[in-house]
């Protein structure tokens, strides 16, 4: 009983900030303190969301966007993970390969757009390339860092009970580096997502980024805002899924 009331109070506090913001925003619109066609209010956006676009269309745009990010992320993140693990395990390979990686790392994924357009044209490949770059660098650096900072005592302990070679890699090194890899994946996902939006805003005929550009072309700010909110929501949900469901469960020993 007491606990339930405390829970309800917590819920109220948690949402109070959101409610205050929404109410103030709507009031500013209703009272015409701002121009509603430039700064649309929550109700206007809700109206757009409910009546302007059929749910099926929106879901389709969202699906396309998610597919793109996922595809690019899997390529970039997968390559990054494999490279990072190998670089950490075969130290000579790691030292050799780290030069080019360190040089390319400070170049943000978006700076590759002109090159990507040159190499792959305006199509899907360019987008996937940009997105995969977003995932590659955070994953590769964090994986490598995790691999080379595994406590040597762990290896000694494992060797003394007879683990060697690939089993040492699979059973000790990679699991011990997993928390760092997880950090890399999370950062990589957010960068992939950020790059997706840029790629879609630049050139696409489907996807949530395209929805925003459509809103801009027809000059309806509420469509732009709707698209932004959708992308934000999608980012929030996917990050939650990756971090809480995947990592929290698998890496409970680390994150507690």
């Amino acid at each position: 009983m007491k606990q339930q009331r405390a829970f309800q109070r917590n819920l109220l506090v948690s949402w109070s900030g959101v409610i205050v913001v929404l109410v103030l925003w709507q009031l500013a619109n209703t009272l015409r303190l701002v121009n509603p066609s430039v700064f649309p209010g929550p109700l206007q956006i809700l109206d757009t969301a409910l009546n302007r676009f059929p749910a099926a269309d929106v879901l389709d745009h969202a699906r396309i966007s998610v597919q793109r990010v996922l595809f690019g992320f899997l390529i970039g993140g997968g390559l990054g993970m494999v490279t990072g693990i190998l670089a950490g395990w075969y130290r000579l390979f790691g030292k050799l390969i780290w030069g080019p990686i360190e040089i390319l790392r400070p170049v943000p994924p978006l700076a590759w757009i002109p090159i990507a357009l040159m190499w792959f044209g305006l199509g899907e490949q360019s987008k996937v390339f940009i997105i995969s770059l977003g995932a590659f660098f955070p994953v590769v650096t964090n994986t490598y860092k995790g691999m080379i900072s595994v406590d040597p005592m762990l290896f000694r302990a494992a060797q003394s009970i007879g683990l060697r070679g690939p089993r040492l890699l699979a059973k000790i090194a990679v699991p011990a580096a997993l928390p760092d890899i997880a950090v890399g994946i999370r950062v990589g996902w957010s960068l992939s997502f950020g790059s997706l939006v840029a790629a879609e805003v630049l050139a696409a005929n489907r996807g949530l980024g395209y929805m925003i550009m459509y809103g801009r072309e027809v000059g309806e700010v509420e469509v732009i805002v709707y698209g932004i909110l959708l992308i934000g929501l999608l980012n929030l949900i996917t990050d939650y899924l990756i971090f809480n469901l995947l990592f929290r469960r698998q890496l409970r020993w680390y994150f507690g």
Binding site: V221, I231, G232, L233
Partner: peptide, 16 residues
């Protein structure tokens, strides 16, 4: 939520 909003998706809005 504000952190999840992709900054680059704000570009068209900021321009408007």
């Amino acid at each position: 939520f504000a952190r999840s909003v992709a900054t680059l998706s704000l570009l068209p809005l900021a321009v408007a």
